[in-house]
Amino acid sequence: MTLIAVSAADLADRYPIEDGRVRPHKTLDGDGFRIRTLVMDAGAVLREHRAPVPILVQVASGRILFRVEGAEHDLAAGGAIQVDASVPHEVEAVDPSHVLLVLLGQP
């Protein structure tokens, strides 16, 4: 058992926002998965890229625009999206945000 955070506020305290930055933090690695916490200041963009494995993205706090396959999804706290391996996607923080990224499987 590993306690990651007791609340969104706890997660935000553990991983503070940095001015103008996107910062990934290694949160937990397990058998067949990796979890990263992406900390994004408002206006920060994680430019289009691809993940080598399927991913699950969930907004813990804040609001992001998630662009994938020609669509833009406006995700607020609690919002989540799954993307298959090798599908190009981009993330932009509308507000200061904490985003959980779960990489499913090993590359």
Rank of each mutant, 00 (worst) to 15 (best):
L28S: 13
L3W: 04
A51W: 01
A85R: 10
V39L: 04
Q106D: 15
S97Q: 07
D19Q: 14
D10W: 06
D31H: 13
G78A: 12
A76R: 13
G30K: 08
S61N: 08
V39F: 01
S61L: 03
L104F: 07
V91C: 02
V57M: 11
H73D: 04
D10R: 08
P96E: 05
L101S: 03
A51H: 04
P88W: 07
R63H: 13
S61Q: 09
D74Q: 07
R34P: 00
R47S: 13
P16L: 11
A76H: 12
S61V: 02
G62A: 07
L3P: 02
I17P: 00
T37N: 06
E69M: 12
E92A: 13
D31G: 12
L38I: 10
I64V: 15
R23Q: 13
S86W: 10
I4S: 05
T2M: 10
E48W: 07
L75S: 03
L38C: 01
V83F: 03
E69L: 12
Q58K: 11
A71C: 06
A85S: 13
P107A: 14
D95T: 10
I35R: 03
V87Y: 06
V39T: 15
G20S: 09
E69Y: 02
R50E: 13
H25T: 08
V6R: 14
A8H: 05
V99Q: 02
A60M: 12
D95W: 02
G43S: 09
H73P: 01
R36Y: 06
S7K: 08
A42C: 06
A51C: 08
L75F: 05
S7L: 11
L101I: 12
